[in-house]
Each structure stands twice: as structure tokens, then as C-alpha cells.
Design a protein around this nucleic acid. Structure first.
Lengths: 211, 211
DNA sequence: AGCTCTTGGTGACTATGTCACCGTGAACTT
DNA sequence: AAGTTCACGGTGACATAGTCACCAAGAGCT
């Protein structure tokens, strides 16, 4: 069990070492959660707070029409701050958090976490910082959706996700869901990029070409 | 100076009464800020935290093209939580907070507020709750912008803002800015509502008709 | 009156989303 | 190997939304 990694990714937990490694029932445990596992859902009470060591959680909203849109991703060194929020106050957060790539995480029961928040300044600082970062990121998302052109947003996404060779392994559907658009629109815009010689397309993948 | 009102709107400040009413330099003051005053801007360091007694602050984003969109409003009993966030962490919040209707507020200098956050659990609770509420509201906004039809959103807005007689005193431009759209679109949709007999239009105002 | 500014109306065009339907390739079955 | 199924992508037709250019009416001012 990679305990050293835990304290490397979350230095502020060092001061909680004795609490974490105690032998009480309900103590925090390092656990694996499989792809597809829902961490948090719209009206949820939410009973656990995961601190990620490996893998990835995707946080997204679902429109009535079934379309969805990624709001945020949680990566190693971060925590599911939405869960934290939902249990610190009454407001239900209208989003879903789901494991996208199998995670290993320190799973802290909600009451335990509450106790930490009351008594340890470093963990409060961590939570605030993460929440602020999330807020900034969601506001940026509003901006993107409300004001930016789809072709720019798609190009930006594929540039971010490209490997060293310029290859991106995403289906058109996955891109659409990432940006809150629909598959047809993504297909058309990518086709246009291809005509302009900016990318080459393949099934389930595409490649950026130098301009 | 309406001190009683302060503690009525912000009960958790009662435990800070001696701090607030001390006579040190830089003590929190109740002040008026005029319409148009910017409380917080994109890259701002942000030196004050206002706790609103009267009036209204509007928080919005600005797109490159000059369009803007309201994210959130701050009303009596609330505080400019974005300011709080921006000074608790590095992430710059990409938004602007501006007084829309002259406010009177307890204006707390940032270092003072920091001190309170460190030492008083009730104020922490208040800040968390407000931040969560803001987060929920911004996520809802993403949802609206990404997935809902403009005509529905306009109708919803005017229903919210209508007085007892069903009258709404907003220009098309103001509605557009509220929803992150453009004036022409709002004009056309309102015209359509008028043709369908759902509203009657006037300069700078409109009225909901019963269906 | 004449001037200016705000507000709203409108046509033409572009961008984006929706619906329906099809073809292809990959994976699986038998 | 042949047949079946399904995910993936392409496309035309249409609906909705945003942009651009320009105009007209009213409100306030001198």
C-alpha cells in the first residue's frame, strides 16, 4: 500500500498521520474504485471523500435532452471537492462525479472529514484552494460555452490531448461530450479541419498536422 | 448607522461584535458604495470583503467579443464570496463584481477577514455555505447555457422579474446581458411572444398576459 | 424646431444543434 | 468463413441562435 505516495501527494495529511493510521472502525482506507463507479450524484447525501492517488474522476452535468458536458476532472493530488461541498451545506450540486479511469484513493468517511475540517487548518486551506480552483474553472466553462466558437474549442481540446506525435485517441462522440456539443457538429467541424489540411482523421483517432 | 440590522442579517457576526466595534485603525466600517463601483475584477488582488446590508452587486463575465453574462447576484445578508476566494488562493477568478444598485455594507479589510476565518468557526461555515451555493448556481448556469432554449430562458427570467401586475421593467439589452445572449435575439423572441399573445411590449418594459 | 441618444425592428447571413438515415469497419457468434 | 451486431462516422434538411448592417421611433436636450 503506497503510504509514502499518499503523504507525497497530500503533504498536509502528514499532521493527521496518527488519525489516519489509527485502528478505529471506520478509519480512512486506501481503496480502489472501478471505472464507472459513481462518486457523487445530483441529489446525493454523499458519504465519502476520496483523496486521489491514481486514476481520474470526471465531473459532468446532464441536460434534459440527454446531452452531457464535462465540467472538471479530478486527478492524483486532488480530492472530490464537490462531495465536500455537498455535505458542508444544503445546496445540492447539480452534477455527477464518476470514475473514468480506475482510481486508488484514500477514502475518508464524511463525519471523519468534518472533524478534520473543524480542527486542522491545513486541510481547510487545501479544501478552500481546491474549491476556488473549481469555481474559477467552472466560470471559465461558462465563458467558453457562452462566447467561444466551436471550432476553436475543438482545436484547443485536441491540442491539449495530443501525444508527442500529435495523435489524439478520442471518438467524435467523446469530444462532443467533453465540450457539451453533439456528435454531428464535431464530425462536421473535424471534416472541415481535414479539408483545410489541419488534421488527418481515422476511426477513433485523429492526428494534428503542422500548418 | 443600522448596527442592529447588521447582526440581524449576519447573526454569526454577533460573536465578533467586540472586534467589529473596537477602535483600532483599519477596523471594519459600514460604508456606502455607489452604483458602478467595481468590487472585484479579473486579475485583482482584492483588498476588501463587503457584507451587504442594502443594495445589490452583480457578478458577470465578459466575452472577448464584448458580450457579457450575469453569473450571480449578491444581496443583503450575503457577502462577495468571490473576493474571499480570490484572496484565499492563487487562482484568479475570471469574473467582475460591480455594484448595480447602491449598496451599504460592512466593509472588512482582507487581513482582518483572514484572521476571522482562521479563528471563528461560524464565519467559516458562512463562507463555505455561500461558496457552495455559488458553485451550484454557476453549474446550473453552465447547464442553462449549454442545453436550454433561449425562449424558455427568457420566459423564465421575465416571470421571475415580473411584479404583481405582471410588469417587467427591463430593456431587451438588459435581458440579453442577463442571459449571455444578444439584443437582436431577445427582440425577435419577444416579438414572437407578442404575436402568440403571451406578452405585450413597450419601450423599456413589457407585461405578461395570462394564457 | 432641430439634435442626439437609447431602444427596438428587421433582413441576410453564418454558426450550431437536431433529426433521420446510411455506410463502414471491428468484434463477436456460429 | 460467413453472418450478425454494434460503434463510429458521414451527410442532407431543417430549426435555433448569433452577427452584421441598417433603419425608425421615442425621449431628452438646447
Amino acid at each position: 500500500m503506497p503510504d509514502d505516495q499518499l503523504y507525497r501527494l497530500f503533504p498536509f495529511l502528514t499532521s493527521l498521520k496518527s488519525e489516519i493510521e489509527t485502528d478505529r472502525p471506520n478509519r480512512p482506507q486506501i481503496a480502489r474504485l472501478p471505472k464507472g463507479q459513481v462518486i457523487f450524484e445530483a441529489g446525493d447525501p454523499c458519504r465519502i471523500i476520496p483523496f486521489l492517488l491514481q486514476g481520474e474522476i470526471r465531473v459532468f452535468t446532464l441536460g434534459e435532452n440527454g446531452r452531457e458536458m464535462t465540467l472538471y476532472r479530478i486527478r492524483p493530488g486532488e480530492s472530490c471537492i464537490l462531495s465536500i461541498s455537498s455535505l458542508m451545506s444544503q445546496s445540492a450540486i447539480p452534477a455527477i462525479a464518476q470514475v473514468e479511469e480506475e482510481i486508488s484513493a484514500l477514502v475518508v468517511p464524511a463525519p471523519q472529514f468534518h472533524h478534520w475540517m473543524e480542527n486542522y487548518a491545513p486541510i481547510r486551506k487545501f479544501a478552500y484552494a481546491l474549491m476556488t480552483q473549481l469555481l474559477a474553472s467552472v466560470i471559465t466553462t461558462v465563458d467558453e460555452v457562452a462566447f467561444r466558437r466551436m471550432d476553436e474549442r475543438i482545436m484547443e481540446l485536441i491540442e491539449e490531448r495530443a501525444d508527442e506525435a500529435g495523435e489524439v485517441f478520442l471518438t467524435h462522440q467523446q469530444i462532443a461530450v467533453e465540450l457539451g456539443s453533439s456528435r454531428e457538429v464535431v464530425s462536421r467541424i473535424l471534416k472541415d479541419f481535414e479539408h483545410k489540411g489541419r488534421v488527418s482523421l481515422g476511426r477513433g483517432q485523429l492526428k494534428l498536422l503542422e500548418p
